[in-house]
Amino acid sequence: MVTVDLAQTSVRDLNQRLHDLLPGTNQRLWRVVNPKGQHSIAVGLTAPITVEVDGHAGYYCAGMNKAASVVIRGHCGVGVGENMMSGEVRVKGNASQSAGASGNGGLLVIEGDASARCGISMKGVDIVVGGSVGHLSAFMAQTGHLVVCGDAGEGLGDSIYEAVIYVQGKAHGLGADCVEKKMTPAHMKHLGGLLTRAGIKADLERFRRYGSARKLYNFHVDHADNY
């Protein structure tokens, strides 16, 4: 295991070392200590390594992640795992706003709560939140899954495209064109798989599914005269 102390090394140097690793590297486990809320820790990783951050991270931690597994043993600032492509990002504490924003793939797990705009404009990432999410989560979400084991704030799934939202607790209001949909056995099975991958226990029977009513983004023949 390689330990990097951010009290001694700059984030830029840490990230450069992580970017220089080749896919077949033997240095597969990295530990980052003294993050102290610094921004952009472990962004843009492309090697299949594990990076453990011991403490609270600042903005954009593990952003653009590809193939790597990043674990934050603390809270995260704005935009954790933003635009991630693959791999896994796991926050042991809470996450601030816009967690997983525009994520293309991979799995983002937030064991605590996430605040506003979790999964905004997500494009294929799977996000599992152990606690609750704030307002306007999954805003304009295109594909992927957002699983919320607690409650969801106001305006959930506003202007949503084809992403799927599961909420175990209460949704405090749905956004424009977001509606509740039927949970089928196929959805239950997929949800169970996501929770297992995330390592989070929940009661499958209690989840409700939300998605697009497809009235906002689809062309409707009644509007043909407008053109």
């Binding site: 102290k36 809320g37 610094q38 921004h39 609270h56 600042g58 903005y59 809270h75 600032g77 809470n94």
Partner: peptide
Amino acid sequence: EFRSLANLPGVERAAIW
């Protein structure tokens, strides 16, 4: 942001939200 609080005495035991 948390960066400004990171060096406060006892911050590792603080409730942060």
